[in-house]
Design a protein around this nucleic acid. Sequence first.
DNA 1: AAGTGGTCTAGACCACTCC
DNA 2: GAGTGGTCTAGACCACTTG
Lengths: 248, 248
Amino acid sequence: MSETDASGPEDARLVALPLYKRAEEAMRARIADGRWPPGARLPNEPRLAEEFGVSHGTLRKALAALEAQGLVERRPGRGTRVARTTDEAAVYAFLRLWDTGGERVIPEPLSEALAEDTATPAEVEELALAEPRVWRLTRCRGHAGRAVSLERMVLPVARFPELGAHRPLPNSLYPFYESAFRQSVVAARDDLTAEPADAEAAAALSVAEGAPLLCAARVARNLSGEPVELRRSLYLTAGIAYRVDLSK
Amino acid sequence: MSETDASGPEDARLVALPLYKRAEEAMRARIADGRWPPGARLPNEPRLAEEFGVSHGTLRKALAALEAQGLVERRPGRGTRVARTTDEAAVYAFLRLWDTGGERVIPEPLSEALAEDTATPAEVEELALAEPRVWRLTRCRGHAGRAVSLERMVLPVARFPELGAHRPLPNSLYPFYESAFRQSVVAARDDLTAEPADAEAAAALSVAEGAPLLCAARVARNLSGEPVELRRSLYLTAGIAYRVDLSK
DNA sequence: AAGTGGTCTAGACCACTCC
DNA sequence: GAGTGGTCTAGACCACTTG
């Protein structure tokens, strides 16, 4: 009852995990820690099934879950690969702007400023920083001939060591984070509010001070759930909206 | 080559649908048209498999898809039922307000006004109306002692025949739509913008005219994709935010 | 105890991709 | 033609709920 009874109260949940879930978590861990980097090809299904000691069907259930989460891409005849964060994928998942005509809006960079700084206590906590050095990136982007967004990003210097060497930064940042710093963003949370334009935003977006702007305060996270980027975007929602699809 | 070749170019897509997808669509249709109303218990898996002429595993794959979409609820030992739109489910899926303390915000009704009216041409199109009579429901809701939202709903009289008989309306409208009018909302699209408060909103929310408000313009749809409700919510985002979770 | 859904297996066959 | 993922089956066994 001491050594043989392995199902103690602590690991009862782990023992109870079904095989397909264990295989899924094992593969997710390989992607998260870089053993299977973006673009890497996975062994084929029979090999994976043998490796994890499960049947074909069970292994496929685990892979289906990873595919549904956008972590791997599967194609008949071609195999299974770890999904790269492409421009298209990043825009699709993380840029929610649409114009009144029903077309997606992808603003183009107008200006950017980058500086190293010390994080505020709130930023240290939100980014779970061991070391308070951060980059502050401010970017203004435009669409259809006018400035529509002013974005202020905060990035840990520890995760993005030589960010200043890559300027000007590409329009789509998340694919760049992945390819240049091995920092993949797979999830984000936006808290949306309406805010009056401050002096800097009013100047950048050519509106009066106090004009209503849509503010999106974001925490972007990697596969391990660690915060990678803070972002505060101010949008001039004239002919543009932040679109959210809700469903059961 | 004439009658035997059933795979003509028109129905090639239909013929190619895998069995699990066909079973899924067949069951979805039964839910959508009311043959399996909310709360109804489905036949057990062996019966359904036999009815659709597929194996246990194939039938389960179809049911798993419906469960993932929130259309059915399954419990070991209890069976499979068509999901009801409960208050909890509706709040979880369609009310995205959180306070700065990280708690969900569920505003309480302060006042409501209901009137029958003729839809504007834009509303006729957005609601796909055959007949332009609509209800206009205006509701003010509050939280923590102050008014935080002013909502204007537009509902087709044809779908909600005796809406006026149910006043005062319950706080959570979507479960009420389902139980009182058999109108289930399973998806919605919110277009978010920042707007200056007009005179009515300023009075209702106790802010100055022109103060920034978060505006959510919504189209809510049923299982068949038909528009059921238009809604324009104005939120006073002081200590409150509209939260959006994004992921690959 | 009976009935339900949940897991897992072993194997067959198909469609697609690439050489 | 060889290799890949996608579909489908038949059956076994388990865990949970209800009477």
